[in-house]
């Protein structure tokens, strides 16, 4: 496993030297229902005029990797092109009975759970392919969840740059300070992907991380 990480690190250095900027992969990672797909839609709608993912309030709505190639953002005469990867939310447990609460029947719930487990595996596999990760956190939830700590630690171990998007700032319970305290070594941008609040600051931060 250490060899695998070392290889991935070397590949990233090599790719960084010779790869065109257009091939940069920007991954959206986080727990289920953090708002990754809403943010993916916001970005592609802003810059491509179209949405890329299906959004719902049922956890694990995104169960496959969604890739949108050639997203180009422009700010102050500068241009940044990347491939945006919307990933299924990562969880340590998936119980089909949780989906029954959302009025899915037993067969649909079981199918969703099965697909969700595969989605989590794919998300983790794809970590190796990322050049940068936009880690999406629900700013109304406790940031000290083990999923957040494990994933962000894992990205650090792989030397993948991380920018934290503290989503859902439009909600009363939102607490960005708690997220900043939990991850003091990372830049945290508070946003509402749904309303587009502070999204310009997020784009500015992306230019800095992906330069």
């Amino acid at each position: 496993m250490i060899i695998k990480v070392f290889r991935s690190y070397l590949k990233r250095i090599f790719d960084g030297l010779f790869k065109k900027k257009a091939n940069i992969k920007l991954g959206l990672y986080g727990s289920p229902n953090a708002g990754k797909s809403t943010l993916a839609n916001r970005i592609t709608k802003d810059w491509l005029g179209q949405e890329m993912s299906v959004v719902s309030n049922i956890p694990h709505e995104t169960r496959d990797i969604n890739l949108k190639e050639g997203v180009e953002i422009r700010k102050g005469g500068k241009k940044l092109t990347f491939n945006l990867v919307d990933t299924p939310g990562i969880a340590t447990k998936i119980d089909y009975e949780d989906f029954l609460k959302f009025k899915l029947n037993s067969k649909e719930a079981k199918q969703r759970a099965k697909e969700a487990t595969k989605g989590v595996i794919e998300s983790i596999k794809w970590l190796d392919n990322m050049d940068c990760v936009l880690f999406v956190l629900d700013s109304t939830a406790n940031p000290y969840s083990q999923i957040n700590i494990t994933l962000i630690g894992n990205l650090a171990a792989r030397n993948i740059p991380v920018l934290i998007a503290a989503n859902k700032t439009d909600l009363k319970k939102s607490n960005i300070k708690k997220i900043e305290a939990a991850f003091p070594q990372y830049k945290v941008i508070g946003i509402s992907a749904e309303r587009g609040d502070n999204i310009e600051e997020l784009y500015d931060a992306l230019f800095k991380v992906l330069k």
């Binding site: 496993m1 990562i90 998936i94 989590v120 595996i121 983790i124 494990t150 994933l151 650090a156």
Partner: peptide, 14 residues
């Protein structure tokens, strides 16, 4: 190890 924690989640899903 950090990488093993992610692998543990993957193995759990399987």
């Amino acid at each position: 190890k950090r990488e093993e924690e992610a692998e543990l989640i993957k193995a759990t899903m399987e």
